[in-house]
Design a protein around this nucleic acid. Structure first.
Lengths: 150, 150
DNA sequence: GTAACTGCAAAATATTTGCATCCTT
DNA sequence: AAGGATGCAAATATTTTGCAGTTAC
């Protein structure tokens, strides 16, 4: 505690935490960092592993929930029981999430990516059905894995 | 047991259980029936509620897994921790699932439906990404709810 | 200083596994 | 009769909740 370095390296405008009115704490900073480094999606378990035993499991649950609420991250649906989370890109905020990108799940490396391509599939819904939100999940082989010979 | 009625009302060809080479048991028949009646998706919990305390929770887990393996039902991704299952329509079998329909989640009644509309959204994936399977999740208001005034 | 965040303990849920028994074929 | 399915018990794993101590602002 003697020589702590100033963690105020980012201005309020740049810091998602401050932008959203959250107090800046060690765990939030760290978890946010993991998401930014990764540029991919992370499950609760992934975070637990990557963060080591630094935080309590409970803190991760609460932090993820807070980030979801504030529109800092979004949840990516999964057919198994391993929901993943990734940083929001657009102007998401408390209550509203607005994403128009594909979620790509690599069947080889198992990573999940957000592909920034506006997709508005030609939906022909039956009469009476009104679409509010669309999420496209694509399973396949990612760039990294398709170039790797293995 | 004295006067049991013949449950062999369906021929082998029509019975999904027999088709897939599964023994026909009470729980499988019942769970399959729930899916057929419902014509919507069911979560593990839904089944537990609808079936009452007739079966053990474990039997439901195992039955769902068996049905998934055999291609009788498919799992529908979810952003929460409530994966749902629905009957397969096409020629799904052990190992391969092939669905080209939209999964519609009603934000009002919370039901999930499979809409049989071939959708092959115009995917423009970045170079190197190869799609194998596509799942389109649409959130909105279903027919039933949109006509109901509530 | 105060409100909010975190860690710890514990409760509540959910899922998996082993084994003896029962049922389907 | 034999293999497979089910029920029960119990081991694991996951998620939620309460509360007291700590930290950010």
């Amino acid at each position: 505690m003697a020589d702590r370095k100033p963690i105020e390296s980012t201005s309020t405008a740049q810091d998602p935490l401050k932008q959203k009115g959250l107090s800046v704490t060690g765990s939030r900073r760290k978890i946010l960092q993991l998401f930014m480094q990764q540029k991919g999606a992370l499950s609760h378990r992934d975070i637990e592993k990557k963060a080591g035993a630094v935080f309590d499991r409970v803190t991760i649950y609460r932090t993820l929930q807070t980030f979801l609420d504030k529109g800092i991250i979004h949840a990516i649906p999964s057919a198994g029981n391993a929901v993943r989370y990734a940083l929001c890109q657009g102007q998401c905020g408390p209550g509203h999430h607005d994403h128009q990108h594909i979620h790509f799940i690599c069947s080889r490396c198992k990573h999940t990516f957000c592909l920034d391509h506006s997709v508005t599939p030609d939906l022909h819904l039956p009469k009476g059905y009104q679409a509010q939100d669309i999420d496209v999940l694509v399973k396949g082989v990612c760039q990294q894995c398709s170039t790797t010979s293995k």
